[in-house]
Design a protein around this nucleic acid. Sequence first.
RNA 1: GGCCACGUGGCGGAGUGGUUACGCAGCGGAUUGCAAAUCCGCGUACUCCGGUUCAAUUCCGGACGUGGCCUCCA
Length: 470
Amino acid sequence: MTTPQLTLYNTLTRSKEAFTPLDASNVRMYVCGPTVYDFAHIGNARPVIVFDLLFRLLRHVYGADHVTYARNITDVDDKINARALRDFPDLPLNEAIRRVTEKTEAQFLSDAKALGALDPTIQPRATDNIAEMQALIGSLIQRSHAYSAAGEVLFDVKSMPDYGQLSGRNLEDNLAGARIAVEAHKKNPADFVLWKQSADNEPGWDSPWGRGRPGWHIECSAMSERYLGQTFDIHGGGLDLIFPHHENEIAQSRCAHGTHAMANVWMHNGFLQVEGRKMSKSLGNFVTINDLLETGAMGGRAWIGDVLRLAMLMTHYREPIDFSVRRLEEAEAKLADWQRAARGAEVNDGDAPDASVVAELADDLNFHRASVALDFIAKKANRNEGNAKHCLAATLRFLGFGLDSLLTSDDGWEEPPHIASAISARLEALNNKDFAKADAIRNDLAEQGISLMDYKDEQGQRATRWEMKR
RNA sequence: GGCCACGUGGCGGAGUGGUUACGCAGCGGAUUGCAAAUCCGCGUACUCCGGUUCAAUUCCGGACGUGGCCUCCA
C-alpha cells in the first residue's frame, strides 16, 4: 500500500504544508491538556477528539509503534488552589489539592474514553516535572533570556528578536492594547513569569529562586522536551492558546536550547458556540462533557460519546462550530445509518480502513469529505456489494466509533432473552397471517424501547432484526 | 482601540475563476399485510456594495454581521 502524503495547516506559516516528520520511526506530537480543577466542558472535548483523529491517522501512516503523542495534565495552577480551599477548607492544602486534581483528572480520562479517544502515549503531570522546569529556567537565566525581579523569575522578551512569530504580533501591538497592567518590576510589559514565589498557604517547591511554583507556560516547554525532545513534529491546542501560551512556549524552548524551532507544525482547533451563543455560565448554556453523557442538559436527554464525537467532527477542525441539539440529532441519525449498514461484520483491530477515507483525512483532516466517502461505502454495503460491509466496519473502528453503540445500548449491555422469543413468536404469527397478534408483540416491544425491522434473509425467508429506539 | 478568523439552499457542510458536491429534513416511486429499515428519483444556494475579468460564490477593496486574541480561557 502506498503511504498517503499528509498535508497539515500550520499556524506558523498560515498555510497548508506537506508533512514530513523529523524521524519517520518516531513521529512526535504534543497537545496541551486540561487544567484539572473542574469538569471539562464541551469546548474542551474538541481538541481531545480532533487530535485523537490525527493520532490515529499518524499511527496508520507511520505505524502504531512509531508515533508518540504526549498530552499533559496541568495539576499546579492558582485556580486549583482556589478550588481546593473552597471545597476542602478543613484539609491541609496539599491534601485538598490532591483531592481536587485526582478527582478531576479521573473524570477527564473517563470523558476522553467515552468520546472514543485513544490514550495518548504519555500523559505527564506538571507536578512530576518540576525539576525539569527548574533546569529550563536555569538555562534561560544562564543564556540571559531571563532575570529575577521582585521574587519572580521573568522571561525577557526583548532578548528574543523574533518573538511573536506564531501569533503575528509584535511587542508594539501588545503595547497598543494598553490593557496589560504595567508592573514596575518588569523590564518590558510583555515579559512573563517563569517562576513565582509562594506564600506559606500556597503550594511550592524549593528552588534557587526561593520556595515557589512555576508559571503557566514553562510546564509545556519542560514536558515536551523531556518526552519528545528539543524539537519535535506537531504541537496542538485550541485557537485561544496561540497567544500568549504557545508564543511563550516557543520563546522558552527555543531560547533555552538555542534551536530554530520548538515544533515544526503548529495546529489549532476552532472554538465552538452552544445554540448560537457563546458558552458561558451566566447565559446558562455552559455544558460539560459529563452533562451531555449523563444528563438531559441538551435536548432533555443524554447522548452517547460516539454521537458527541461525530457531532464534533462533522465540521472541519479549524472552523467554528455551533453545538446544538439539532446537530446532535443529525450526528446520531448518521451514525445509526453507518452502524446499520456495517451490522454483522466481523472486524479485528488491525483491519485496514478504506483508502479513500484515509486520503481525505490526509488532507488536513478533512473529516467531512471522509464522511461522504463513508456514506458511499455504506450505500454499497446496503446493496451487499463486495466487501463493503467489512470495509465500512473497519473504517468506523479506525475512526474511533463503536459498531453497534446506537443499535443496542451501552457497552456491557446484554440482550434480554425475551426479545428473541418475542421475535420468533411474532414471526410464527406472521406466517399464520395473524397480524393482530404480530402487531401486539411489536407494540409491546416498542414500549420497551425496541423497534423491529423485517427483511428477507439470503434464502428469501422473512426475518426480523431489532434495535434500540432513541 | 490593535490584530485575526468566519459568513454557502429549511438545516449540516465541502469545494471551485466557467461544467454548480454530498448528507439530513421534505416530496414522489419501489419494497412491505401495515410499519420500520433499505433502494431509486427530485433541490441551480453561495451576506451586501463596488472593482478586476469574456466569465466571481470562488480574486481584490469596502460595508454589515458573528466569533476569537490582546486579561494564565480549549
